[in-house]
C-alpha cells in the first residue's frame, strides 16, 4: 500500500478527492440501487421487498466507496469507477425499467 513518492497535497487534489468521495460515491450508489432494484424486480421480486433490501445494503456500499476514494492511489481510477460506474449503472437501470413497464 505504501507508495514511495506520494503526490503533494494541493487544494485541487483535496477538492477532487472530497468530491469523488461524496458526489462520486452518491452517483455510484444511485446507479447501484436503481440497477439492483430493477434487476430484482425483473427477476420476480416484489418491488417493496427489493427496495427494502437494497436500502439496507446501499449505505454500507457508500461507506466503502467513501473510504476507498481516499485510500486509492489513483484519483482517476476513483472517478472512473464511482462516477463512470454510477452513470453506466443508471443508464442500464433506465433501459431495464423501460423494458419492464
Amino acid at each position: 500500500m505504501t507508495s514511495p513518492h506520494p503526490s503533494p497535497i494541493t487544494a485541487r487534489v483535496v477538492v477532487s478527492r472530497v468530491a469523488a468521495s461524496t458526489l462520486g460515491g452518491y452517483a455510484f450508489c444511485w446507479g447501484l440501487s436503481t440497477l439492483s432494484m430493477s434487476s430484482l424486480v425483473a427477476l420476480g421480486m416484489d418491488f417493496d421487498e427489493a427496495y427494502t433490501l437494497v436500502m439496507l445494503i446501499v449505505f454500507l456500499v457508500f461507506l466503502t466507496a467513501f473510504c476507498w476514494a481516499f485510500a486509492a492511489r489513483s484519483l482517476r481510477a476513483v472517478w472512473l469507477v464511482l462516477a463512470g460506474g454510477g452513470g453506466a449503472m443508471t443508464v442500464a437501470a433506465w433501459l431495464l425499467t423501460r423494458s419492464l413497464v
Binding site: W30, T34, F47, T90, V101
Partner: peptide
C-alpha cells in the same frame, strides 16, 4: 429512486 427514476415500477407495483 422510487419517486423518480423507478416511479413507473413503483406505480405498477
Amino acid at each position: 429512486v422510487a419517486d423518480t427514476m423507478l416511479k413507473p415500477l413503483h406505480d405498477a407495483h
